[in-house]
Nucleic acid binder design. Structure first.
Lengths: 215, 215, 215, 215
DNA sequence: GATGAATGAGTTTTCATTCAT
DNA sequence: TATGAATGAAAACTCATTCAT
């Protein structure tokens, strides 16, 4: 449920080239031999996915088109439709990549947390992340909205929620994690939109209450 | 920040009547039947706005088109572009209408609340509102996302937030209202998506902690 | 063939209200009594015509629409369609008004011409009229182009040509007028477009040759 | 400034083929007939440009639409918008092509001119070109009008004017070329519109005076 | 008489997707 | 394998015109 910006799309993790996408209608060439001219741009697929995430974050799902994505990725239009069977497919895979990345990022946030104090500090940072977290926060909400209408995306939101709650639960227990999850989500959304941000103290207070003894 | 469904928008589902009018001036004999074009429809504008909200709720801002809206409102396509200068304009006015309506609805929810018990009950109902609240909840989040990119919509989200916080603050004080607002937002979003809803008790517990003494 | 800007649309010459246009399909009311509520804006018709000429000059025939004209004239859209049966009609009548006005203007230009010297001076002024003549020059060429495709406008161009040649012929004879007419037309067109205008001397030279003894 | 008709644009008049392609991928059995979609059409772009010029000549810039052009070129509508970013763009490129073509045509007219007599003969032919020159003459004036409003087209009219004057100047000197240019322009415009064409002798006379000794 | 509302046709443009190469 | 060309569908929007009031 939390998000921060993914590493720059330089050298990503060399996705397995299982081409589920593209040209699934095409008659297989004679012999189906796997020529390897493709090696010259091995991470184009992931470049496209990252570009798609950029576009979704900037223009919303409504403004996401093959052309925008191709332009952002710096690849020809045909390359996008070649690598992904449909725009829906591409969006789904992009969101999947985002969730995967954010799971790691989120996990790492708490790597060095030893005390409750530190734990809360990290959470407050998360809410007050400012522009640095803008992209990932927006992507998170876009995914939630999209999942509302596309059941195929539900597994992603579920994975995400479970993952982040799992991390939080190590510090709060399962119930506290659920409460915290909701609270953070709401506070991040408001932080994105407000012109008068809450103080860090107010944020900390809200978190403390959620984690403290029942009222 | 809270929402429930507005009254059903008049008689919808009446697909575009496909009126083949035009240029019949010289063909109609003295016995020409009087076609029932242009019914007097004084609140067509608002019907279109309600239809737009329906469409946004169902398909998202991404899937909102003049055609969808016209079909849903039971008016010809040209009628939509006649009443609204652009699709953006229409969306903005629809959201404005939604915010206005929800302000009233939200206010009314607490009209008869006398005790703290009753107050919390209403809040829990809000989160667990089920399909009845689906439409307004979705519209709320769509508006938030849209406002993220269109500064022109910010005043709406601000009005909304201030309004609902104002109502809540009568029971909780300003700070409590802000905390509650965020918490409810997050819980409603999760309630929309989850397949395993939280129990009412868990929801009540979260609310109680947020309103109770600091941890 | 020459043109300069018409007088400001203040008090025009009170066109005869022969409403050939508008609502020709409407069933005449009982008794067809001529109520006189219309007297409150007697020159609205001509205001619309002048606005149409403005729009044609500025945007070309291609950009001429009821809406543009209505906006320019400061009248409601319905008023334009009420006074003129069709857009074509309106354009034709606007061009007719223009030709009529320009005939007068052109005539007046030579009112005080006594010598050949003065005559040529006026012609040179005409070509070098600058922005003051821009509108009428453009309208002249728009009319010519439009008349190329709409034979109904031919009588206007013919009237115009005959009129201006008639005036010129008083100083040059018929043949000279025809030559002069063509030369001026070409020079005016070039003057409209060029960034490096000819000198007045060059213009005068060209006129002199055209009027002088055969080569 | 001069113009004559380009070679006929390939095989026109072949209305849009109404190819109902799309999404047949899963329906075509192993014996599915091989539809002859997408013929290899390397100069479709220029065919569209020529069609655009035809349409402009026939209906004017005002009547030039994607649909008209597509129909005239015998290509589907989408093909026109694929090759040209906007209708303005298309018009500009079409005009550019026209100017380019006419430069050559104009040059060629004078290729074999050896004497002054022959030179004047060619000019008189130009003015009295009749229907054969209609298209290019109209296009010339349409371009001039369009350039009046779109500064981006000014370079075209400038190129054109300079080019034709350059050719004329070889026979007349620069000043004479400018005078001749204007005179011819005006005479061609009048020739297009008049129902009573001037005699060739009158045309020759006007040219002679323009080229002869100053009056 | 005059006009705001209304509408169907048509405009430009965008776009997902297909396919020849 | 990869891509530029191509295309049908549909999007947003414009507009001449009609008509109830």
């Amino acid at each position: 449920m939390l998000h921060s910006d993914p590493p720059p799309p330089g050298p990503p993790e060399e996705e397995t080239p299982e081409e589920t996408a593209g040209g699934e209608c095409r008659a297989a060439g004679p012999g189906g031999g796997r020529r390897r001219t493709r090696r010259n741009d091995p991470d184009r697929r992931t470049r496209i996915l990252d570009a798609a995430l950029d576009v979704i974050a900037e223009y919303g799902v409504a403004g996401t088109t093959h052309r925008h994505i191709a332009a952002r990725a710096g690849v020809p239009l045909g390359s996008v439709t070649y690598h992904f069977a449909s725009l829906n497919d591409l969006q789904a895979q992009a969101f999947a990549r985002h969730v995967e990345q954010q799971a790691t990022v989120f996990e790492d946030l708490f790597k060095d947390v030893a005390t409750h104090e530190q734990f809360v500090d990290v959470l407050v940072d998360l809410v007050h992340g400012g522009p640095a977290r803008h992209r990932s926060a927006v992507l998170g909400f876009e995914l939630h909205l999209a999942a509302l209408r596309d059941p195929g995306l539900r597994s992603l939101t579920q994975t995400w929620t479970e993952g982040s709650r799992g991390v939080l639960a190590r510090f709060t227990g399962l119930d506290g994690a659920a409460r915290l999850d909701a609270l953070l989500e709401g506070m991040i959304l408001h932080a994105l939109l407000t012109t008068a941000p809450e103080s860090r103290e107010a944020t900390r207070d809200a978190i403390d209450r959620t984690l403290g003894p029942p009222g």
